[in-house]
Amino acid sequence: MNEALDSTGGAVPGQRFPRQDAGGCGPDDRVPEGVMLTTVERLYNWGRKNSVWPLQFGLACCAIEMIAASMARFDMARFGAEVFRPSPRQADLMIVSGTVTKKMAPQVVRLYNQMPEPRYVIAMGACAICGGPFRDGYNVLPGIDLYIPVDVYIPGCPPRPEALLEGLIALQKKIAGQPLTGAGRPRHLDADAPGAFPVPEYGAHDLVGPQLPAAPDA
């Protein structure tokens, strides 16, 4: 564990203890070899970010790239995210991979609501981000972030598996950087954070129901 923490947690900002040298005795000579000092926050986030289990579903051609990313050639297992769960109850990450039609949007939001916290969303590809080439059409949602909060946007049409992996790494960095207390804490540690997001309903001309405010520019 000592090595793993070193290799994956070395880049975390605000690190309180310097890296141990190989074969050294830790930051302090009084700490014996094989013992490492860290914070609960870092250890907790290190565990969370290295076992992000995605929900197994795909919406369009981006899903093919997602499948490729999970297979041996690109091997998402290297990042601990290979365990695609068929149930939202066991999933941590929703990869919205593809075109979200207005007819499908309520089901996507409902699946998201069924996921337990902590949960994260990757909007994969132009369609999931903003509707893509179908944005002005009658049947495609102009961005899944109208209804659920998106953590990482991956542009592309479709994004290559490497792009999905980079998005996953970006998400891991975000998880690793989340403080467990204070303003930027994850939603599951914030009792006031919304647990369920309103599911849009089918209206006479369009989906009806409250939408999320526009995402702030990153």
Binding site: Y138, P142, D145, Y202, A204, D206
Partner: peptide, 20 residues
């Protein structure tokens, strides 16, 4: 419950993305 016929030439889609 949808009432329109989207492939008609005079169909104007509802502006669902305007808020965004």
């Amino acid at each position: 419950g949808f009432e329109d016929h989207p492939m008609r030439k005079d169909y104007a889609p509802a502006a669902s993305g305007e808020a965004k």
